[in-house]
């Protein structure tokens, strides 16, 4: 297996927080090109973990290795070049006067020449389907559109890894749907590694791998269908049971018994119910 991120024994304590550790001896590996969801309740350490990987916080103990480079004061800028971060609030990360300017901002900082810059900007705006909005100002955009511009800005610098920190939590259902679809596309087309911190169970169910954090520790890690089938753990960590599992359990209670493997598979449960209800 080819890991792009290796975290070993990471520990982080905020100042003035007593003995409580925001991250407590966390170790994990993330496979190159995979889509990983990090879930857990507010304050479980998810954002601290993501920010540590990007070198935005200096942790107390542990080793972080990103694409073969060990994170340190000397390497933090090399590592940041490999990582694009998208944050929660679309308004806080819009720096340009127009969509086009906003995407170009990062490139200007990298000293890219103008012709090339235009090409890249056009390209990435097309990718996020915002090419018709090039000259719009941020106040003329919906939250979902602003997040798409933020993603375009990140794509422009060709990162190996994109980290989304609750990037869909402030969006309306349509905006959320657009962003999740976009993440899925980018990750499949470009072999980019995606790490998404999220509370959205239906989003996490689409990813390759789920890591559950609770009080700064990893309590479970694996395929979503395995992780979200563990009722006890969901209850303990305050996570939501997927809709399909709710429905499955309610059916069983009323004496309808679909095969157990359908508890984690909405399409197959739908199929099974159709068979049950439509056969003459």
């Amino acid at each position: 297996m080819n890991n792009i991120i290796d975290v070993k024994n990471l520990t982080y304590k905020y100042a003035n927080s007593g003995d409580k550790k925001a991250l407590d001896n966390v170790s994990l590996s993330i496979e190159k090109g995979s889509w990983t969801s990090i879930v857990g309740h507010n304050g479980s350490g998810k954002s601290t973990l993501a920010r540590s990987i990007d070198g935005l916080m200096s942790y107390n103990e542990g080793v972080i290795n990103v694409d073969g480079i060990i994170l340190s004061d000397d390497t933090v800028w090399d590592i940041r070049k490999k990582i694009g971060m998208i944050f929660q609030n679309p308004d806080n990360q819009f720096v340009g006067a127009t969509v086009e300017d906003d995407v170009a901002f990062g490139l200007e900082n990298l000293g890219i020449e103008t012709d090339k810059m235009h090409k890249i900007v056009n390209n990435v705006l097309k990718k996020v389907r915002m090419e018709d909005f090039k000259e719009r100002q941020p106040d003329q955009l919906s939250g979902g559109q602003k997040q798409r511009v933020a993603i375009a800005g990140v794509l422009a610098s060709k990162p190996e890894i994109i980290i989304l920190d609750e990037a869909t939590s402030m969006l309306d259902p349509q905006g959320r749907y657009e962003i999740i679809n976009l993440i899925n596309e980018i990750h499949q087309e470009n072999d980019i590694t995606v790490i998404s911190i999220t509370h959205d169970v239906s989003e996490a169910m689409l990813s390759d791998h789920v890591i559950v954090l609770n009080d700064g520790k990893i309590v479970e890690s694996g395929a979503p269908k395995k992780v979200f089938n563990d009722d006890e753990m969901l209850k303990l960590t305050g996570l939501e049971k997927p809709f399909n599992a709710h429905l499955f359990d309610a059916l069983v209670e009323q004496g309808i018994h679909p095969p157990v493997e359908l508890r984690m598979d909405e399409n197959d449960l739908e199929e099974w119910l159709c068979q049950l209800l439509l056969k003459a």
């Binding site: 309740h41 507010n42 939590s169 402030m170 305050g238 996570l239």
Partner: peptide
Amino acid sequence: TAGLDPQG
């Protein structure tokens, strides 16, 4: 409830 975890 925007931005809160499911339990919250």
